[in-house]
Design a protein around this nucleic acid. Structure first.
Lengths: 139, 139
DNA sequence: ATTGTTAATGCAAATCATTTGCATTAATGT
DNA sequence: ACATTAATGCAAATGATTTGCATTAACAAT
């Protein structure tokens, strides 16, 4: 058994999730992938036949357990990725690919602006960039 | 005829839009309102009886003409507002109200990060804060 | 003021992403 | 091997939004 396989099984076990084809393969797809994927994207990349409802349920469960992360992008769809920490993305407006971006709004700036806007508590923020990726520019 | 009425009629005329009850009242609601409103929100605030499809069409048309602005928030719904310039919001996670925020990511920072992420062209960015508004904190 | 052209509107049905209900199946502890 | 309960599949429901099509209302030309 390879290392990746072991890791996935360990993750599932640690989170009280059964080691099913669904759980295993969804997680496998997301671990390999470095971009956020929509539910449909995951469905296309997965190597087993899986019902869409089940896919929705697995992704939802994994994100609720904190194993994967969820974002809603401007297309109104939900995207998932295997990334431990808060971060942002840049989306290609031609092909839709989403890369990670290092920049983040500091807690300081968050605090100042939230106060200015008449809010009291800070929870979170979402930041998304849009541009054209190298591949698409070449076309 | 009041000033506000004149202004709306002028806007419609300048954009080759007929001065219908629909156009007039939708624009009137958005001009008065300082927060972004969902289609449903506009429907509730409008003083005439209007079909939902028509409402969608009017809002879409106004935003395509550049008269109003459109954003998709994390609830996956489309919001509209009458605001001329690029800006961001803070959304109350309790009641959903959306206020304007002054902070913005500079062109410099945008450029640096887009290059780092392997992208070539910069188009735009979206930034949304989440917190609790004063009203909701008091409750 | 009347008419013609075209945009604007309303209604029903379609679409798209996502969710729910319910019956069946499979994974894991005993 | 068996029981328990989670996981899955399928059909139908939901909610936001869009489309097709027929009707109506604005506005420009007469």
């Amino acid at each position: 058994m390879e290392k990746a396989t072991k890791t996935i099984e360990k993750i599932l076990e640690d989170n009280n999730l059964k080691n099913t084809k669904g759980h295993f393969n969804v997680l496998s797809v997301l671990i390999k992938e470095k971009h956020p994927l929509s539910v449909e994207n995951v469905g296309k990349k997965i190597s087993i036949k899986i019902n869409t409802t089940t896919l929705y349920r697995i992704l939802d469960k994994l994100s609720k357990k904190g194993i994967i992360y969820q974002t809603t992008f401007l297309d109104g769809k939900t995207y998932y990725e295997y990334q431990k920490h808060h971060h942002h993305h840049i989306t290609c407006t031609k092909c839709g690919i989403k890369n990670k971006v290092d920049f983040c709004v500091s807690k300081e700036i968050e605090k100042i602006n939230i106060k200015k806007a008449g809010f009291v508590e800070i929870n979170d923020h979402v930041l998304e960039f849009f541009g054209v990726c190298k591949k698409c520019q070449k076309k």
